[in-house]
Amino acid sequence: MTRLRELIDPFLLLLLGTVALASLLPARGDGARIADGVADAGIVLLFFLHGAKLSRAAIWDGAKAWRLHLAVLATTFAVFPLLGLASQQIGAVPDGMRAGLLFLTLLPSTVQSSIAFTAIARGNVAAAVVSASFSNLLGIVLTPLLVALLMQRTGSGSLISLASVEGIVLQLLLPFLIGHLARPWIGGFVARHKAMIGRVDRGSILLVVYAAFSAAVVEGLWQTVSAGEMALLAGLCVALLAVVLCFTWGLGRMMGLARAERIVLVFCGSKKSLATGVPMAGLLFPASSVGAILLPVMLFHQIQLMACAVLARRYGAQVDKADTELDI
């Protein structure tokens, strides 16, 4: 029971509660407009804080492992999208959720959990900071471009509008850059209040999820998705993660990377960012379709946390055992 509590992220329960609230009491009319406005403000704050947390010293310390960083980016923005395109051939998944699977594979890596799992596994933490942060920053530009290129061709989405581009610049990129430039003045405050900043991050995501699922529920989301389709979607997320985990570990061996760097490749290369995916979906897709598109992202988020928590503890235990044997 204790192990189960360790594997289940409490944030997942909050996400499920938010989806349930949106399903029972969706925002409508003026309420929906207010919810959208508050969610937009939360997104701006979220990316401002992400920029403020990015340390330039950590960037310089980890930037030397350029082969590793290229491998992480290639996995995130090339291998994953190819798997996403393959998933579009599975006709048993409803169109909206199938589009969500493809969107999931176009997202950048996570930052916090990638670094945390790398540390637990005794990997190269400085390199993980660089890989995860650069992937996240690059994703602000690359993800919309990949959405326009791949989702248009598969019929899963439409070309990005000028309004979408403006939203990405004003709500994601500009706050991120301002936050990073302000780091000399607010970096200390952010470092001292990590717990509070984390609550702000998660609260912003919950606001966007509520607004997105409210719109989807009003459009009849739960009348079009069955329990069997949800189970199939979860199975596909598990399969997708398993393939990428095996690929990244094998790629690291093939490249001759040290174990500490292979660990970075596994944890940074296999992750997809919920924090980036939720607000970006709201900017790129019609409100009525965002809920279905976010279902794969939310499922994959929890599955990747559970699987990587087990792997990180296993890798860390192996290193500890080896160190103990050397001491003896």
Rank of each mutant, 00 (worst) to 15 (best):
M1G: 14
T2H: 15
R3M: 11
L13M: 07
L13I: 15
G17P: 09
G17R: 07
V19E: 04
L24D: 07
L25R: 13
L25T: 12
P26H: 09
R28Y: 03
G29P: 00
A39V: 03
G42K: 00
G42I: 00
I43G: 03
L45N: 02
L46N: 01
G51A: 06
S55V: 02
S55K: 06
D61Q: 11
G62M: 03
A63H: 00
A65T: 08
H69G: 09
V72H: 13
L73P: 01
L73Y: 12
T75H: 07
T76P: 00
L83T: 03
L83F: 15
L85H: 05
L85S: 02
S87P: 00
I90P: 07
A92M: 14
D95Q: 12
R98E: 07
L101H: 06
F103T: 06
P108R: 13
Q112E: 11
I120K: 02
V125G: 01
A126F: 04
S131G: 04
L138R: 01
T143Y: 04
P144S: 07
A148K: 01
A148G: 15
L150A: 09
L150W: 07
Q152E: 10
Q152M: 08
R153A: 15
T154R: 09
T154F: 06
G155S: 08
S156H: 10
S158Y: 01
I160K: 02
L162N: 12
A163R: 12
L170S: 14
L173S: 03
G179T: 06
G179M: 08
L181S: 09
P184W: 05
I186N: 05
G187E: 09
G187F: 02
G188Q: 08
V190L: 03
R192N: 10
H193W: 07
K194Y: 01
M196I: 14
I197D: 01
R199L: 14
V209N: 00
V217M: 11
L221P: 08
Q223M: 15
G228H: 11
E229G: 05
E229A: 13
L233D: 03
L236E: 05
C237I: 08
L240A: 11
A242L: 12
L245C: 15
T248G: 08
L251A: 14
G252H: 03
G252C: 10
R253M: 12
M255F: 12
G256N: 09
L257T: 06
L257G: 06
R259F: 07
V264T: 11
L265G: 08
V266Y: 00
F267D: 07
F267K: 02
S270Y: 02
T276M: 15
G277A: 07
G277H: 05
V278Q: 03
M280I: 09
L283R: 05
L283T: 06
P286I: 13
S289L: 11
A292T: 00
M298C: 14
M298G: 04
M298P: 04
I303L: 15
I303M: 09
M306F: 07
A307S: 14
A309H: 13
R314N: 06
Y315C: 05
D320M: 10
A322L: 11
T324M: 12
E325K: 02
